[in-house]
Nucleic acid binder design. Structure first.
Lengths: 209, 209
DNA sequence: ACTTTTTACTTTACATCGTTAAGTTAACGG
DNA sequence: CCGTTAACTTAACGATGTAAAGTAAAAAGT
């Protein structure tokens, strides 16, 4: 008993339903627990129907991932806009690490899972736009700080600095996600590690006082 | 045509053969490409035979992983022993990042893949022993530097410092592995990012000159 | 008004995966 | 010579992603 023809709104509504079901599954039990069949069961359709709305599993996950990139960018921009760019960078580190702790599965999908697909076909809107691209936002902050010549000259250009800041915080976050349960090394508190990393990065990049 | 009884040496020889076949597969094509059936085909046995030598796939991978932890620890210790502990730390960063670049699949398995098993049953030998545990080695270096009071007092104890150093370099390495192909941000050269990270971490942790 | 095409979906099916149960066959212990 | 055991295989189960082939109702064409 297939129903009548669908309006574009109805089509994208079902697409969103599928995405919601997929997210619900993988935030709860991790990426590897998501199966097309189980998503289908949740939305009440047969498994093959999903392939009318997404090319394959990889593209479905990529769509989820793209959406989370936007969410993260928005969350990071929701900070109180401190006037000082350095204070902004500190707040950014704080928010970023909080996001990783709150949504470890999303974080894993976004930043710790290899992607085997192309970049052209999906949303290319966000790249470089600070509204939609968290890295572009960070880069803008670094550049605005750079103009005030606060960084050591040997640190290099804004891109290199931004990438180093990102890598530093990402290192703390990703190790936390992988090794939080492990007890073979006595982990300091997550917040303490984030804080020291942020302090260290800035102290190491800025000109000595 | 099953052969005669096996000596313990022959048993562990076959176990090693299985491990070698598994490694060959996953260094070449990544962890997700490794299947028990294909490993079995490589060693010339039926798939079920592998289960006589390993509890399941997870344990087989864990054994590979354990071996790589040892290898890494050995490679890091193979550095020329600089007398200066700070020079040692620099060399350690260099070797560590080189390892990640040379063996990205091993690195992913070791440091970027969640483990769903217990820690008790596998080799618990290495933990804390600088000969076998790369983190313990790093920690020893940091402690030896700490005794010379080179670190800023606000940096905290040796464990926190070691974890921050590790996280910083790991951040650069893991982002490289995941996003090396991506072009939506213009990556600086890997070596440049490693170098700036190392410089930044030390400059931020050490007392100002 | 009747036929044809298209849309939305399902059923069936295939290949592959990890893993278990049930053989099979050769060597060994009695 | 017979029974047990060690080493391994074949067959099979349930799950996975996904393609091919239906099915039925609405839309389009005449």
């Amino acid at each position: 008993m297939p129903p009548k023809t669908k309006t574009p709104e109805q089509r994208s509504a079902l697409q969103q339903l599928i995405l919601d079901a997929a997210r619900e599954l993988f935030v709860a039990r991790g990426i590897e627990a998501v199966s097309m069949r189980e998503i289908a069961k949740r939305v009440g359709y047969s498994p093959t129907t999903l392939y009318l709305y997404f090319q394959d599993k990889q593209h479905l996950l990529q769509t989820l991932c793209d959406h989370d990139f936007l969410t993260l960018a928005h969350e990071l921009r929701a900070l109180e806009q401190e006037d000082n760019p350095l204070a902004q960078i500190k707040a950014l580190c704080q928010s970023y690490s909080r996001y990783a702790q709150l949504y470890p599965n999303q974080y894993r999908l976004m930043f710790m899972t290899p992607k085997f697909n192309i970049s052209k076909d999906t949303t290319t809107l966000r790249h470089g736009n600070p509204e939609q691209d968290a890295y572009a936002y960070l880069l803008a902050m670094v550049e605005s700080a750079h103009q005030q010549q606060v960084f050591r000259p040997e640190a290099g250009d804004s891109n290199l600095i931004a990438q180093t800041l990102w890598a530093g915080i990402h290192g703390v976050c990703s190790l936390q996600i992988i090794f939080a349960e492990d007890d073979w090394l006595d982990w300091q508190a997550y917040e303490a590690r984030v804080h020291l990393m942020q302090q260290t990065l800035l102290a190491g990049l800025l000109k000595p006082a």
